[in-house]
């Protein structure tokens, strides 16, 4: 019997059944000339930039460009065409199909009440220029894009993971990222610091926040069975009765002996 083949480049959930003759319908990509505002905009863009494709989908203009002109085009869109807000920036993983990421910039023009999406494709090992000088909102979006896809961004002011921990391995939104956790992960630090043979000595990770080691008298005291700090836990407990009850707990306050140091206060 053959094991079922599972592609490694896309480990996400798939439809368990698809009709052999089923062809997915497509959302039409309308011509830009259908909308006057968009048509005027695309004319101006084409006069200055080399764009690959432009169409309207579900009422929004989509412009596909070469990734190297992303910053200049966004500057142009902001200053000349009034697309003054960057509402969203992220990527789509097409590594399995084309070995590429698709980065998209979702822009909004407050004056024209129009939205525009700029898209470009970059290879897995390529970096893209930061658009942070154009829109400050790209600061965090690009960090998130890096965090989730591992897309490097050039000239970013503070290029660091944002949602995942700094020492996280892997990029969660890639299609290759597994859907279940790594069960050996709890040993990684032990293996690295002490060596594999210490796994049994150290034992599994303690996930219980209220966990108490009754044998550890350095950090924990047992109520009703107090032993001196550091003594073996099963040694003779300290007897409360053995305290000298005659010793005064508080020294009697003697007014005559005391003196006021600073009368002015």
């Amino acid at each position: 019997m053959m094991r079922p083949y599972r592609p490694k480049d896309n480990v996400q959930k798939k439809a368990y059944y698809t009709d052999r003759f089923w062809i997915a319908p497509r959302i039409p990509e309308e011509d830009v000339s259908q909308d006057k505002v968009y048509a005027a905009d695309i004319e101006k863009i084409k006069a200055k930039f080399d764009i690959k494709k432009a169409y309207i989908q579900r009422g929004q203009l989509v412009v596909i460009i070469d990734p190297v002109i992303n910053k200049e085009l966004l500057f142009f869109l902001r200053d000349e065409l009034g697309y003054d807000m960057l509402m969203e920036l992220s990527a789509i993983d097409y590594l399995a199909q084309d070995g590429e990421f698709e980065v998209f910039y979702q822009l909004l023009s407050l004056s024209k009440r129009k939205r525009l999406r700029v898209k470009c494709r970059i290879k897995e090992d390529e970096a893209i220029e930061s658009v942070n000088p154009v829109f400050r909102s790209a600061d965090w979006s690009e960090r998130e894009m890096y965090d989730m896809f591992g897309i490097k961004v050039n000239n970013h002011p503070y290029f660091k993971r944002i949602l995942m921990p700094d020492d996280w391995v892997g990029y969660p939104l890639r299609k290759t990222y597994p859907l279940h956790g790594d069960e050996a992960a709890q040993w990684y630090e032990i293996d690295k610091i002490f060596g594999k043979e210490y796994r049994e000595i150290v034992g599994p990770e303690i996930r219980d926040a209220a966990w108490i080691d009754k044998t550890d008298t350095e950090q924990f005291a047992r109520y009703g069975h107090e032993v001196p700090k550091g003594a073996p836990y099963d040694s003779e407990p300290v007897k409360i009765d053995s305290f000298n009850e005659d010793a005064p707990l508080v020294e009697t306050f003697d007014l005559k002996k005391s003196k006021i140091v600073d009368r002015d206060r």
């Binding site: 439809a15 997915a24 959302i27 990509e29 989908q57 579900r58 509402m87 939205r115």
Partner: peptide
């Protein structure tokens, strides 16, 4: 069991 299958394409809806 299978879910709806929308057409191929993309939307951004605010």
């Amino acid at each position: 069991t299978q879910g709806m299958r929308p057409p191929v394409g993309e939307v951004y809806v605010p």
